[in-house]
Design a protein around this nucleic acid. Structure first.
Lengths: 352, 352
DNA sequence: CTGAAAGCGCTTACAG
DNA sequence: CTGAAAGCGCTTACAG
């Protein structure tokens, strides 16, 4: 027992089998939690495994078997807010099942996006791939992945696709709810700062805003709808534009946090007290939402849960490389719960 | 040519060798850019490789050879500011050399940290590991990694360690420079908001502040040094404390952005105009530094470059598992250039 | 400059 | 319930 047979290299399945007095197949069965092993055999093997600190080597399992125990995560332009939750969720869920997360950031300017994806996939052979926006909407990336037979899950895609599972939140509903929050506080003139036309979320959030206004019999004033680009500066401009009017609104709902922060800065720069003179709501619950005064009322995206769910869908789905691509990829579109985060930037409107 | 020999599975080295009319060893040599292959042979093989779209499988290379082509990145509590740059830098540098980045977030509360690390390392056999704060200072993690013989690079460790390479920036110098920036603007009374005692950066940045003040013959007023915890709220409190005095300073240097943002919020909440009545400087150049008004003057950490460098050091270092742990790990401690980011939150002091 | 053989450490498919 | 054999797709060590 005290004699270690080989140098200081880690034990292999053969070593364990020899010490335990069973075949490597039995050790393999125990390690993979297969049924049909006598409980006394199982316990004995497990004991030896513990003593020898045996850990199966991923590369060997991967080469011999059908799974690589690797999940890929593709980023394009990692917005800090998004990355943190996604990473945490995906990585923890992977560990629970003995999987590992391989992250790849693609360059913004890459003309050979599809090739990069293909390269990654054929070297790594991941059991699944998680795509975040805007990559989850890139047809070249999607095609490369489909050609390789790699199962994918799209996170918050602009639109759902036949045959490709996705996870998302309900942008329309969330926007509706936060607008209703403002209405419930007593606001009647509520401005909206829209995102750019090329992003799917823009229209969805606007839709929720309009729906909320109409459901309460409030009119959507065209002068109070400003189209920004989801960046800080466009929020500042929106504030100047919207607040420059004599008959200004008592609340502004900017459809992402960056723009809401811009609105806040713009409002404060012209001496408006938030939330007394103006309520401001955002969308995303980015880290920065808590780093201003007053802290921002916003919507928390379930990034952590979406990532966990994505991994789960991928691990559940068996890899279907050999089969015809279309036949066995289970297609589900899941919608996860968001959360309203009411902070100090929204309050009752001042009496006029 | 038009006939594809096997099903739709991807070609192996044997397939390529057969089509090219050479041995698999020769294909292997070409793929690994080894010398000693006739140029005509090399070109011919490369052509066939291109036509067949052959990509070596990582698991096979890993099992047969000494390298896994995997670099591990360990996080603990991913601060959004840090993650984004690190990820980008590491992942791009990895791709340039055919490596892949495996990310693992450890749980804050894990009592079995070392075991988790050991598990990851023995399954994956990464060729190297990058540790970010505060994991890079955790003795259990370090020990687990040393025991396994995995080469590591520490990013911004609290203290450098014998035999373990590291990459960092010069916190003292950066803090000194930003303080001098304030002095050069004409400030003489400059307050400092310190970080918590248990973080290495706290003392370093304070040291730089003191050095700058002394070098210009300014006195460090103890009433103007407030100890926070690197969080927003402590910045708010610092502002109230420091600015509540009759004889208040004209500038505050908070030693990270979160606290600086807190100071900004605190100052604005009592009606102070920044930067006219008060200049504020931070440290980190976090995403939020650009999402407030006025935008924050701060120090940009070279996270992207540090990550690139870390990968480079790891790829350069050959894996030394078989040897005695101490003997061949090349120990280097690199210090990378930071950058002062002068924005609108600092300006000349008002005449009294 | 090129190749034949062995083997990395597992899983698969089969037999009993 | 258990095992012997073959093989996954490469690299290593060696020979010529």
């Amino acid at each position: 027992m005290a004699i270690n047979d080989r140098a200081n290299s880690s034990p292999t399945i053969t070593d364990v089998a020899r010490v335990a007095g069973v075949s490597i197949k039995t050790v393999s069965r125990v390690m993979n939690r297969e049924t049909g092993v006598h409980s006394s055999t199982r316990e004995h093997v497990l004991k030896v495994v513990g003593e020898m600190k045996y850990r199966p080597k991923l590369s060997a399992r991967s080469l011999a078997g059908a799974r690589s125990f690797l999940i890929g995560l593709l980023y394009y332009d990692p917005s800090a807010a998004f990355v943190s939750g996604v990473q945490q969720g995906a990585t923890l869920r992977c560990r629970e099942s003995g999987y590992h997360l391989v992250v790849e950031s693609l360059r913004d300017d890459a003309p050979d996006l599809a090739q990069q994806v293909d390269h990654m996939v054929s070297a790594l052979r991941p059991d699944g791939m998680i795509l975040t926006p805007p990559l989850c909407d890139n047809p070249h990336v999607l095609k490369a992945l489909r050609d390789s037979g790699t199962p994918c899950v799209l996170m918050s895609p602009a639109r759902e696709r036949e045959g490709i599972p996705s996870v998302r939140m309900d942008d329309v509903l969330a926007a509706e709810e936060i607008t209703l929050h403002l209405v419930d506080l007593g606001h009647k003139e509520i401005a909206f700062v829209k995102g750019p036309a090329d992003q799917a979320a823009s229209a969805l959030r606007y839709k929720g805003y309009v729906r909320a206004m109409k459901s309460r019999g409030l009119t959507v004033n065209k002068d109070f709808v400003y189209t920004g680009d989801f960046k800080f500066q466009s929020g500042v401009e929106a504030a100047h534009k919207i607040l420059g009017t004599r008959n200004r609104p008592t609340a502004i709902f900017a459809s992402n946090d960056e723009m809401a922060l811009g609105v806040l800065a713009g409002a404060q720069s012209i001496g408006l007290d938030v939330p007394k003179a103006l309520s401001i709501a955002g969308f995303d619950d980015s880290p920065a939402a808590k780093l201003v005064w007053p802290q921002l009322t916003t919507v928390s995206q379930p990034t952590y849960e979406m990532a966990r769910m994505a991994v789960e869908m991928l691990i559940g789905t068996g890899k279907s490389q050999e089969d015809a691509p279309e036949e066995s990829i289970e297609s589900e579109h899941r919608v996860l719960e968001h959360e309203l985060v009411i902070r100090m930037s929204t309050g009752k409107p001042a009496k006029r």
